[in-house]
Simulated assay, not measured.
Amino acid sequence: MNSIYVGPTSDKPSFSWVAKDVFDIVEEEFNIVYFKAFNEIPTSYDGLVFIIKEMPPLSFFIKNWRSKKIYVPVDFFKSETHLKNTLTTLSLFDRIAVHNDLLKHYLNANKVSNVDHYVKYLVDRKNIQPKYMWIGVVDYIPELLLNLDRYPVLWQFPHVFLTDLAHLKHSLNSVLAKMASTQQQYEVKVSEDKIFIGKFCFQQWTESSQKAALESAEFAVDFKSEHFYHSTKPPTKVQVYLANDVPVFVNDTHYAIDYLGKLNIDCLTMSDFSYPLSPKALRRHSSTVRELWSVEAIAKQYIKVAKLTLTQKRKSLSSYAFTVSSLMFKKLKKLVQSGWNKSQ
């Protein structure tokens, strides 16, 4: 059985969601070896390495030139400029597995494969109440507030907004600065377990608080901007809502519209919103998407990507060496320039 190295491992829940849960099933086809640091991979190893999120240092490409490499850039690229500045390094990978089609516009399409997130958080709906929910990281809160300002119809409903409160407390000034263009004035109140921004209450995300919201919220919202970082993220929250039969409404530029359209699943936008919720909004998708996005189905996607990469023709050693050399020169030039600037 062929071995595959997977890492770098992380204690963050996202690593289990994106990698470990999936590769524990891939292990039925390959011997999986997890690594925490890149130097744990033997330099003599000539098999396959799955690299999750973290970009390896240049030394890894120099020492581990024998191995085939697949990069899974989950949430890594913060901007279009960031991605373009990384293109030379990306060319050293044998394949790139993306969770969002829009990234293909910037990459060599012949070396790109699609993989999905599996739906991890599944509940049984019960005690449904006339309230709505939103779950997201702090980066998305300004877009949430902008859309709440745009759609005041939502103000009449109680809400459950779950995020990382510690991060929000540290980022309040940044969040409010991004809201400066609106006419709304947001009074902020901070307590130990809640943060109010205007009339909207944010609480701590935990698996249990999310479970309770998924069980009882009548519907959900998810808003993303057209900025690069938002538009190139996978629609994971929308997937979770659909898998739990929580009707979800998005803004008109949300990536989920295109993503779900290719699966022949209607994605509801705020233009579709009416209350009581329409039969279209209440259409159930869980039986279809739970199978489509099961961890077993996603593991098959990764197995397919692995087998494709193992059989594909490699970049020539001379071309690989030239690319590494150019990156070494670029790095040396930057160090020299930095030292020169400090000496002046």
Rank of each mutant, 00 (worst) to 15 (best):
R95Q: 11
I96V: 10
A97G: 10
A97E: 02
A97F: 06
V98R: 00
H99F: 15
N100D: 08
N100L: 07
N100A: 15
N100V: 07
D101T: 08
D101I: 03
H105N: 13
H105E: 13
H105M: 05
Y106P: 00
Y106T: 00
L107E: 05
N110L: 06
N110H: 15
K111T: 11
V112N: 00
V112Y: 06
V112C: 06
V112W: 01
S113I: 03
S113C: 04
N114P: 03
V115K: 02
V115W: 08
V115F: 10
V115D: 04
V115A: 10
H117I: 06
Y118A: 09
Y118Q: 09
V119I: 11
K120Y: 15
L122K: 10
L122S: 03
V123M: 09
D124A: 13
R125I: 03
R125L: 01
R125H: 08
R125T: 04
K126Q: 11
K126G: 03
K126A: 12
K126M: 03
N127L: 10
I128A: 08
Q129I: 12
Q129R: 14
Q129C: 13
K131A: 09
K131Y: 10
W134E: 07
I135D: 00
I135Y: 00
I135L: 00
G136F: 01
G136T: 03
V137C: 05
V137W: 06
V138P: 05
V138I: 11
V138F: 00
D139A: 09
D139E: 13
Y140C: 11
I141M: 10
I141L: 04
P142Y: 05
P142C: 04
P142F: 02
P142M: 03
E143F: 09
L144S: 00
L145V: 10
L145G: 12
L145E: 15
L145K: 15
L146F: 08
L146D: 08
L148H: 05
L148N: 05
D149T: 15
D149W: 12
D149F: 07
D149I: 11
Y151K: 04
Y151C: 08
Y151G: 06
P152G: 04
P152S: 13
L154E: 10
Q156T: 13
Q156I: 14
Q156K: 11
P158K: 08
P158C: 12
P158S: 12
F161L: 07
F161K: 01
F161T: 01
D164P: 03
L165M: 01
L165Q: 02
L165C: 00
A166T: 12
H167P: 01
H167G: 11
L168F: 09
L168G: 06
L168P: 03
H170L: 13
S171L: 12
S171E: 14
L172T: 01
L172M: 11
N173C: 02
N173H: 14
N173E: 13
N173M: 14
S174N: 15
S174R: 09
S174G: 06
L176Q: 11
L176H: 05
L176W: 01
A177E: 08
K178L: 12
K178A: 06
M179T: 04
S181F: 10
